[in-house]
């Protein structure tokens, strides 16, 4: 984009961008550590993830304060206004994603025994897909790449499918007494965390679509080719 006449306008925008990248990077790491903690049943690592959530909350508040100040001081218009509003929303989505990573980790420390292979693999796959989606969504945000944002939006379908499969599987294994009700419920809740993370990432994709087009994404894949 062409530079702004007021140089400090661009430096403030860049500052916000850097902070949101930092937030996204932290969220990705939180999710990655949560997966590791789950796979290794590592309660210490899980606790570290929970403790780090406060830093993420702090980052989000910081971005929000900067954005409010920017709004008051610069009164952005058009693309700049859409960009700023979306930055505030994306920061909120990322903070919620990190909350789910922390919730996921809490469940790890409550599990009595390591989960069986199949549901465990599905949960890991869901969480890894989420991690990749965050990465792609942030990439789409930085490049204002609508096609990529739309692709991320549709990737959420995979997570929903995996979640449905996982729930059926865990229910079946609970009936077969492969693990107790508490652990089974815990696993479903962990899957649910990933499923909700996927939903928050689709919101991010919608925000990116809005920045670029000024429109709300309808869910139609073709839309990104006409904008």
């Amino acid at each position: 984009m062409q530079s702004h006449i007021v140089k400090s306008f661009d430096s403030e925008t860049d500052g916000l961008k850097k902070k949101i990248i930092e937030l996204a990077k932290n969220c990705e790491q939180q999710l990655s550590k949560a997966i590791d903690a789950f796979v290794a049943m590592d309660v210490d690592l899980a606790n570290a993830v929970i403790a780090h959530d406060e830093y993420i909350n702090h980052l989000q508040r910081d971005i929000e304060e900067d954005a409010v100040l920017f709004l008051a001081r610069r009164q952005p218009m058009a693309l700049d206004l859409r960009h700023l509003l979306s930055v505030m929303k994306i920061a909120g989505e990322l903070e919620r994603i990190a909350d789910y990573a922390a919730n996921f980790s809490k469940r790890v420390s409550h599990l009595k025994m390591p989960p069986t292979q199949e549901p465990s693999d599905l949960i890991v796959e869901m969480a890894k897909t989420c991690q990749l989606m965050i990465h792609d969504a942030m990439d789409a945000f930085l490049r204002l790449d609508v096609k990529k944002a739309v692709a991320v939006w549709h990737k959420d379908d995979d997570i929903d499918t995996m979640f449905a499969r996982m729930v059926t599987l865990v229910q079946k294994q609970m009936q077969e007494n492969k693990f107790d009700i508490k652990d089974g419920t815990g696993l479903i809740l962990m899957g649910r965390c990933c499923e909700r993370i996927g939903d928050h990432i689709t919101n991010m994709a919608e925000d990116i679509y809005f920045i670029k087009t000024g429109k709300t994404y309808s869910g139609d894949f073709e839309d990104c080719y006409s904008s």
């Binding site: 702004h4 006449i5 218009m77 058009a78 693309l79 206004l81």
Partner: peptide
Amino acid sequence: IFLNPIHQLTQDYITGRFG
């Protein structure tokens, strides 16, 4: 015009990027 202008010149002007 102020949220989503159609012309690039309008966008450049209202966002302070006129050059």
